[in-house]
């Protein structure tokens, strides 16, 4: 196979291509037109691009073929869509670009978008965000659902998109660049708690897959593998990918939040007069 064949989509999805083009287009437009002082530096732009392109690559290249026919590659795909890609995108802090773009929206349209804001705030409640984050992994990996999702093209796309969108929501909440000291962003302690909480069920699930003696996901047996590989090996690798890297991502997230919290320690003055009074 030539390099070009590896790069073209296995299962061409116009919606996915359009989605990624829109994101990159808006990001580029924001960068070019926003005021100099708000513009993210080249490092942040690079991290954003790497995050977006990773998600694109696992959805619209030959990688998607292997994800459909090998359990462990599928787990790798979701690791990128739900963890690594959104992790990098959120870490690059695209918030100033989004704020600028939001300012450019016509007031009429902005008003129409208000209900979206409500849904967003509802989904970003820490309890709901963490429930969704873990719940989606369990939902799509529940054997009968997983079987259907791998058989039906529509369900397959819904699965991948739901993982990506939920990943963006969750890591956006965790790496919210605003400080909880002077905004209503989630407190650092709570962010750390969430990261630890979501890691545990993922580790349990991963370990369950690794240590199960029978075949949990027989759909790959049924649909044929991309290349002949022992089903047990495929399942073992897939289980390990569900278990270890997500737990490491949580720890990495905790370290980043801790560093941010330590930097802010004692730096920020209490934001209200009332609080100032209690401190003096």
């Amino acid at each position: 196979m030539s390099v070009a064949e590896y790069l073209i989509p296995y299962d061409f999805s116009p919606v996915t291509i359009a989605g990624f083009m829109l994101v990159l287009g808006f990001y580029g437009y924001g960068l070019l037109n926003m005021p100099e002082e708000d513009r993210p530096g080249s490092g942040r732009i690079l991290v954003f691009m790497v995050g977006v392109m990773m998600c694109y690559a696992v959805m619209q290249t030959r990688f998607d073929y292997y994800s459909q026919y090998m359990f462990f590659v599928h787990r790798g795909q979701h690791l990128i869509l739900h963890h690594l890609g959104p992790f990098l995108i959120a870490l690059s802090n695209p918030l100033p670009v989004m704020r600028f773009l939001h300012g450019r929206i016509k007031p009429g349209i902005r008003r129409a978008l208000v209900p979206l804001g409500w849904i967003y705030r509802f989904l970003q409640h820490p309890a709901i965000a963490s429930f969704l984050f873990v719940g989606l992994i369990y939902f799509w990996l529940w054997p009968p659902i997983h079987f259907d999702a791998m058989l039906s093209r529509d369900l397959y796309w819904i699965m991948n998109w739901s993982m990506l969108l939920d990943g963006l929501l969750f890591w956006g909440l965790i790496f919210d660049p605003r400080s909880p000291m002077n905004s209503n962003a989630l407190g650092y302690g709570k962010r750390i708690l969430l990261l630890a909480l979501v890691a545990i069920p993922q580790m349990v699930l991963g370990a369950t897959i690794v240590f199960s003696r029978g075949m949990v996901y027989d759909v790959y047996e049924v649909c044929g593998r991309a290349w002949p590989m022992a089903p047990e090996t495929d399942q073992l690798l897939g289980g390990l990918l569900t278990w270890i890297p997500p737990a490491m991502m949580s720890i990495l997230g905790i370290l980043i939040i801790l560093r941010r919290a330590m930097r802010e320690d004692g730096k920020i003055t209490p934001y209200s007069e009332e609080l100032k009074a209690t401190h003096s």
């Binding site: 459909q68 026919y69 791998m150 047996e221 049924v222 044929g224 593998r225 991309a226 290349w227 002949p228």
Partner: peptide
């Protein structure tokens, strides 16, 4: 592809025999 299945070929041995992975359903 239409039926969400695939097949793959192993490397042939000295006699030219090879295994084929395919759908079992």
């Amino acid at each position: 592809k239409r039926y969400r299945t695939t097949f793959g070929y192993d490397d042939p041995d000295e006699e030219g025999n090879y295994n084929v992975s395919h759908s079992g359903a």
